[in-house]
Design a protein around this nucleic acid. Structure first.
Lengths: 340, 340
DNA sequence: TTGTACGCGTTATCAT
DNA sequence: ATGATAACGCGTACAA
């Protein structure tokens, strides 16, 4: 049970005052070279590390940022975390993580918790960007925040993928193959991502002079279960879709069994495009075409923006970074079967 | 730019001494009921929250634990993190995470970093449990540690899955189907998990009076690339395996394409069992049999043990928790094709 | 260039 | 039961 080594111990060992030790530790230039060497030797000798608690009391940043997501098990978030971590580590920051499990109450609590724990800022994948309490707290600026895949307004920095373009491209491609009844399954009704995706679908239809059938839109869930259920219902329609766009990583593992249980084949009976890319999409039979974007890069950029914000480099204007999407064609798309 | 609310502000507002405020905040019983109420009202009124920095200086725990893994993108680790987080949150703890990317230097640095940052303990998925420096640091007890899927010795608490039994069961099943040449691909040579897996394979063979062909053992990697390469080589042998056991989540996405590119079919030409379970294994064609264990439960148990250790409830004896494994049979196993 | 002394916001000890 | 006050370890203004 050895006591903690403090500045006093080092000062005594080096035969100087604690202020000098502090100066050496913080690289203050006004220290004689021989003294600096002696102090440094004492520091190394005793293995002294400044107490972060004491430093915090003096207002020194803890170099820590928080990351709020719904569930780290979604590979999209683990990739983002990894991306954020890689740039934060470089700058000596560490990462605290917490799941909201989709609850806005929890998100509010976490925001407070992070602030209370001295986080410098938060990277935040808001669940419901229309929740006014969360909105207010983020805007209040009590803690620097960078939003992931969401957008509140001009005051809050954000980074997200270009879902509008990605979805439009996918729909355009299906239309070019001859599809006229294209279903879309995704979740997060009312958030930025969902709005952009719907818009992309509509734009592609408009451009081709085609109508969007509201019955083919299933916009209320991100889970495999939801995809399974809705796909079943879609395929059971009297006028079923000839192509399905499934947006949200977990959806694919609901889509595939639902199609199979109906004894339908991809792409002969129904074409398929999903997002994001995954091993399952790559290795399914047939491999599934995807709208791909780099989640790691998203986390990376979010951390970069937050860090710049913390350094006061981008106060005035809001920054919004768009990560590009890419349509990767595999074996899951074909012209629609001619109607009987 | 409002100043922080402190005990002094609350004390002044309630007309008491700061000591009394502290007593109320910490639930010390020796406070008159009316005073307690008045102070509490002032606390709520001003929205005072004790500064964690100041508390830390007084030796109050920060209620924070660290989690070190190689890469959070491995679903095994994101599940563990989620499991750990769920029990930590309940107890008011938060989680700091960091990737080692497989580097022992980085692991050492992270252990120091976590201690310096006042973590109460660490959940640690050591990469190379034979690294003596990491070993020494963990054993030094400078920070309470619970090991994941590893075992140093009797002094350090650990939790892991029962890989010996899982692998033995898988091998026994393949042998019972008639397989005599069973290959095994996995990584982490020399760590507990790899040893147990190899032992399981050997035990199953011994029990059946069969030899293990060392040429069928590929024990040096966990990546999809490694699996792809080694599977190619295995299938190119003059006497190739009739079944492959691939242990490590990322391996499957290397195994599958390697088998396909050789124009072989599962299970007709080669049987397949992998670990851990994944969406890909469930939805591949055919679905792949797996040795399954609950990574979420593993993280959960690790956190529980760490918490008990922090409360001093399990000092004396080392605790080792075994999570059971389960052999889930799907369509990827069949009797070997009779030799031509 | 170096040293002394104060304050950060708590908790804990000692009086009262 | 309550109040005054001393630490905790650091950074820094000010004095030397």
């Amino acid at each position: 049970m050895t006591k903690r080594v403090t500045v006093h111990d080092v000062a005594r060992a080096a035969g100087v005052a604690i202020a000098t030790v502090s100066r050496v530790a913080n690289g203050v230039p006004t220290v004689a070279e021989d003294v600096r060497a002696r102090v440094q030797a004492a520091i190394d000798e005793l293995g002294w590390k400044p107490s972060m608690a004491a430093q915090s009391m003096r207002g020194v940043s803890a170099r820590m940022v928080g990351f709020i997501f719904s569930d780290i098990r979604n590979p999209i978030y683990s990739s983002m975390v990894k991306g954020a971590e890689s740039v934060l580590t470089e700058q000596g920051y560490m990462l605290m993580v917490a799941s909201s499990d989709g609850s806005s109450e929890r998100e509010l609590a976490l925001l407070d918790l992070f602030r209370q724990r001295g986080a410098d800022g938060v990277i935040f994948a808001v669940q419901d960007e229309s929740n006014s309490k969360v909105l207010a707290k983020v805007r209040s600026g009590s803690l620097p925040v960078v939003l992931l895949e969401r957008e509140l307004d001009a005051q809050v920095n954000a980074v997200g993928a270009d879902h509008l373009r990605g979805t439009r491209q996918a729909a355009e491609y299906l239309i070019s193959l001859g599809h006229r009844r294209i279903a879309m399954i995704t979740g997060g009704r009312g958030n930025r991502v969902a709005r952009d995706r719907l818009l992309g679908l509509q734009q592609a239809h408009e451009q081709a002079g085609l109508p969007v059938d509201p019955k083919l839109l299933r916009l209320d869930g991100f889970s495999a279960d939801y995809a399974y259920r809705e796909t079943q219902m879609l395929l059971g329609l009297s006028d079923p879709p000839t192509a399905i766009i499934g947006l949200g990583t977990p959806l694919l593992s609901g889509l595939l069994p639902a199609i199979r249980i109906n004894n339908l084949r991809v792409p002969e009976d129904v074409s398929l495009i999903v997002s994001n890319d995954s091993e399952l999409a790559q290795l399914a039979t047939p491999p599934v075409s995807v709208i791909r974007y780099d989640a790691h890069a998203l986390g990376d950029e979010a951390a970069r923006i937050l860090l710049r914000q913390l350094k006061g480099e981008i106060q005035p204007e809001r920054t919004r970074i768009q990560i590009p999407t890419e349509l990767v064609l595999r074996g899951s798309c074909a012209p629609p079967r001619t109607r009987r």
